[in-house]
Structures are given as C-alpha cells and as structure tokens.
C-alpha cells in the first residue's frame, strides 16, 4: 500500500491505496469522480485525460502514487458553477454524441489551447487535428469537435 496525497479539484485528499493503483482508478473508485473514463488499455483513446499540475496527462497511464503531491483537475472541477468556454463550445457546436470521449476531449482541448496561447502560436484546424492524435471519438467524425475547440480557442 502507498499513501497518496493529492489536491483534486481544489480539495486535499489522502488515501492509502495499492501501489499498482492507476490515477484513473483513484479518481473513479476512491473519489467517485466518474467523469473521467476508461476507453482502452493501451493509452491511446484519451477518454481518461485529466490535468496534473496544469498539464494534460492520461490518467490510465499514470500511477496514483506517481501523481502524489500533485494537483489534479478533472472534468468535474474544470469550472465552478458556470461552464468553462470549452464546455460551452462543445454544447454550442454539437461536439458530442454519446459523451463518453467528451471529458477527455474537453480536457485535451483546454490543454492544447493553453499551450498554443502560451507559445504564441496559432491553433489552426490542422494543428487541432494533429493535437487530437491521442483522443479517439467514434461518434462525431471529429467535425464538430474541431469546431468546438476552434470556438473555445477564440474565447479562452
């Protein structure tokens, strides 16, 4: 067992968990934050993306113990009360159908917009599509996901 201490969505949490516990299991099973999803077992679908210390990570590929001491934001903690511009953009542009990939898409989208802003680079359609390499959606054909991220990039 390992003691894991984290700040998750602004709240300090501490749990003793098996050494092998993944961050996504910690979030879903220990904290019951079930908005973060698991869609694969090879770190490719991105349904599990959260922010760890301000950067997008795949929580299926991160041990809870590895993250210990860090600050995690999940889809549930992205906005307080009102919607984050990225969340709103997904609703405005029909960027989701079944919603299963959506938390990961939104967390990846927020991360990519922030990175491009910080680097002073333009987030083109082409760049968005390449940046989404690690996020799979089976429902939307990506059209409206790209539009959603484009809209949010203009608003964030």
């Amino acid at each position: 067992m390992t003691q894991v201490t984290l700040t998750v969505n602004g709240k300090a949490v501490r749990r003793d968990v098996p050494d092998t516990m993944l961050l996504v299991e910690f979030l879903r099973e220990e904290l019951r934050l079930t908005g973060t999803h698991v869609g694969c077992d090879t770190s490719q679908c991105g349904a599990c993306v959260v922010h760890l210390d301000g950067k997008a990570v795949k929580s299926c590929t991160t041990l809870a113990a590895q993250a210990s001491g860090g600050t995690v934001t999940t889809i549930e903690g992205l906005a307080n009360g009102s919607l984050h511009p990225m969340q709103k953009a997904f609703n405005d542009n029909h960027g989701l159908q079944c919603g299963f990939c959506t938390p990961g898409m939104i967390m990846s989208g927020v991360d990519m917009v922030a990175r491009y802003k910080a680097a002073g680079k333009e987030l083109t359609e082409h760049a968005i599509r390449e940046e989404l390499e690690g996020n799979i959606c089976r429902c939307t054909g990506y059209h409206n996901i790209v539009k959603s991220i484009q809209q949010a990039a203009g608003e964030m």
């Binding site: 879903r28 099973e29 019951r32 934050l33 079930t34 908005g35 973060t36 999803h37 698991v38 999940t74 889809i75 549930e76 992205l78 906005a79 919607l83 969340q87 997904f90 609703n91 405005d92 029909h94 989701l96 919603g99 299963f100 959506t102 938390p103 939104i106």
Partner: peptide
C-alpha cells in the same frame, strides 16, 4: 435545438453502467 442532455456529459456527470457502484 442545442442538446438538452449535453450538460451532464460536458460536466462529467453522465451516468454510464461502469459508474454504478
């Protein structure tokens, strides 16, 4: 019409079978 079900999905409050415990 924008989708009424979206709110729970974009805020991580969807309820899928694996979320049931």
């Amino acid at each position: 019409v924008k989708r009424r079900e979206d709110k729970r999905f974009i805020t991580g409050k969807g309820k899928y079978t694996d979320d049931v415990r």
